[in-house]
Design a protein around this nucleic acid. Structure first.
Length: 101
DNA sequence: GTTGTGACACATT
DNA sequence: AAATGTGCCACAA
């Protein structure tokens, strides 16, 4: 499995998200250097297969909503993982203003 | 090289 | 508020 530089950068950022914090696709895009890369970031995470290596459950969209097409246990599993991190999840949404890294 | 798809975001309807 | 359209990018076929 070959990993492109782009995906590597995405994984690197997501991997560094501390416990109890979340990151939005937009924020990641900006960190990568271009806010228009949000879509590509989603693709990169979807390609990811290492749930334990890449805490992609800490990544939500701009409104704090969880990803519906979560690749692992589903949205419910993602919610549980977030709550396990001490993040309050309401209606599959998190308070990004409060938890954003 | 072109087309279609998608874990996004923003503006408009 | 919800649906729709537009912009953007990376990837697979």
């Amino acid at each position: 499995m070959e990993i492109t530089q782009f995906q590597n950068k995405v994984f690197c950022i997501v991997k560094e998200i501390p416990r109890g914090r979340v990151l939005t696709y937009k924020k990641i895009s900006i960190l990568l250097g271009n806010k228009n890369w949000a879509r590509a970031v989603g693709n990169a995470l979807h390609n990811n297969k290492d749930q334990f290596l890449i805490p992609c459950y800490r990544v939500v969209n701009a409104k704090g909503k969880l990803s519906i097409s979560y690749a692992f246990g589903g949205i419910d599993e993602q919610k549980r993982l977030l709550e396990n991190d001490g993040i309050k999840v309401v209606n599959y949404r998190v308070d990004i203003e409060k938890y954003l890294m």
